[in-house]
Design a protein around this nucleic acid. Structure first.
Lengths: 339, 339
DNA sequence: CTGAAAGCGCTTACAG
DNA sequence: CTGAAAGCGCTTACAG
């Protein structure tokens, strides 16, 4: 019950606390004999260094903060798994907080992260986040890695996916299959991910000389329900699209549900391509053609960026962009055409 | 850059550090005027209390440890979301670590949790965990809430789902639909969840007078791949089953894939019921009949148990069991029969 | 190579 | 209601 402290170990081993500290921290300047004695004492007493005390003395922290915007979204879950994996490989732990896309909650958690004195912060900002609202973090000198979403005017390390190219590839694929009336269910343009994917859609249509029919471009809020509602709206309109490109995983699931409920066939009545692949995309009805993001790799890379920043605090800021990959299954109609 | 400390605030406000501490901690014994002055100073300086220092002084911690066994499994993700939500509602943060069903990693993270002096620990143990391996945690006096899986001989607060009844209901449903050759793809019986769900399967068959055909009972390792392999094995056997009950979500996804690849129809060629509902179960091919676990509620309840334990350290240990719910969709063939 | 001592930022009896 | 002071468990110059 009574916690074992460094003092207990020192007494037990008959050395000073300084020596115990050195042994515990692998300082080479300790005589082998003393080292052994201390390690035995640690073992015998079941001593575990108190990290709170260590951090108080300004030691390099071993807790990394991860602030994500939607813990229910499989995309972020996979990112989290990558972060956790890479942190573990570097003997760090992860303090995870979920803002739920709520900026008050985000502010509260940013304060928690500062109060916990995390070694660094990997951060997926909610839509309304401004560079100004992060000054506190930057002033505190906590390394900040921005993940997935950009923030206007914020100077920091940054990691994203090439959303424009990913969306472009998906829409071009549909065009190549012969579809001409291609709708998009987009995410809010307030988010960089939303506007970039929309840009890819526009670029692909324009490059093919099809032009953009603004009535086919619907903007949702990235939640499942809005994918459901907008897909319904599109398919019930006088001139429904031949194909729909949906800008994220949750909206894609909603769109699927809506199309099923309307008893329409995919891809015969309407083709579907989603942004974000999911582990179960192949078991959906029909198997989903999707733009796969390197989610796990995003998490790993974010920690990597953080470690580099910790190692070289004054290095110039980096922006790393990872590429996506189009995975063709059945919902786009590619297999149909082939027959 | 230079961190603002309590001393800075005290000087700025012209009071002692003790007074600042009282204001920050909402001690009522502070004159209103001083309180205002301190709060202004906090605001002006952008002061954030250092939690590491606070914890060092033995203050009730505000970080809660969550150690789960598989961060890739949607079940635990949803639990995590529930924990996070409830923790937030009680001004606590969550330190999440993922053992990945690896006991060395689990041991390492248990040490991390102790070293971080978490206020309490919510814990999903890996299969081989013994009560003995947790003595260190118990001796450290950290409240421990065991989640989902039991550990033989461990005295602590415990939260599970009624696995026996859940599995029983699923199998009985299949029996009621007229199936007589009902297979099960079970999880390892080393886990309480695995053995309990298998128990429910046996009980239901015996209660119906069907008896258990041991050749129809396959044991996997809860991963997707084993669901795939065992479903294949079952369907390629000389006498394939009419229905399969799969004991967890990942194996269910694997079984679905195997059945699709064999070009068999669900439920016409083989009916399927899974343990664990998933947010996308309704969009699977066909929509999946599943035993729904109250995952989010499990997370919330775990934090609740922890808070009660923190409030009453000497109360007798509690075991809370939540009930499951069978969600009937199409994969079981219920709709087919109705026609 | 080793130890005594100062100090990290905070809280909490103890006086007043 | 307020402040001076001790101490939480650790690390790190500084002497030796």
């Amino acid at each position: 019950m009574a916690t074992v402290t460094m003092r207990d170990v020192a007494e037990y081993a008959g050395v000073s606390m300084a020596t115990v500290s050195r042994v515990v921290n692998n300082d080479p300047n300790v005589a082998p004999k003393l080292r052994v004695r201390v390690l035995e004492a640690v073992q015998a007493l079941g001593y575990h260094p108190n990290r709170a005390a260590r951090r108080l003395r300004g030691s390099p922290g071993d807790v990394l903060g991860l602030l994500i915007s939607d813990m229910q979204n499989p995309f972020f879950i996979s990112v989290l798994a990558g972060v956790e994996e890479m942190a573990y490989a570097n003997q760090m732990s992860v303090l995870v907080c979920n803002t739920g896309e709520d900026s008050a909650r985000q502010q509260m958690y940013l304060n928690v992260m500062l109060a916990e004195r995390v070694a660094g912060l990997i951060f997926v900002p909610t839509p309304s986040t401004t560079a100004r609202s992060l000054t506190r973090v930057l002033e505190a000198g906590v390394p900040l890695i921005l993940l997935d979403r950009r923030i206007e005017g914020l100077e920091t390390d940054m990691l994203t996916v090439d959303n424009v190219r990913g969306a472009y590839a998906a829409v071009k694929h549909l065009i190549d299959l012969g579809y001409t009336r291609i709708a998009m269910i987009a995410g809010s343009a307030v988010l960089s991910t939303g506007s970039e994917r929309q840009q890819g859609y526009r670029d692909a249509l324009n490059a093919a000389g099809l032009g953009v029919d603004e009535t086919l471009l619907k903007v949702g809020n990235s939640q499942r329900e809005s994918g459901y509602r907008l897909a319904r709206e599109l398919m019930l309109s006088p001139q429904p699209p031949q194909a729909i490109f949906v800008a994220n995983n949750l909206m894609t699931m909603g769109a699927l549900q809506a199309i099923h409920e309307l008893k329409l066939r995919i891809p015969e009545d309407v083709a579907l391509v989603g942004f974000d692949d999911m582990p179960w995309s192949g078991e959906l009805c029909p198997p989903l053609t999707a733009v796969s993001q390197p989610t796990y790799e995003l998490g790993r890379e974010a920690v990597h960026l953080l470690l580099r920043r910790l190692a070289e605090p004054d290095a110039p800021f980096r922006t790393v962009t990872l590429q996506t990959r189009l995975i063709v299954r059945e919902s786009c109609g590619a297999l149909l055409r082939r027959e």
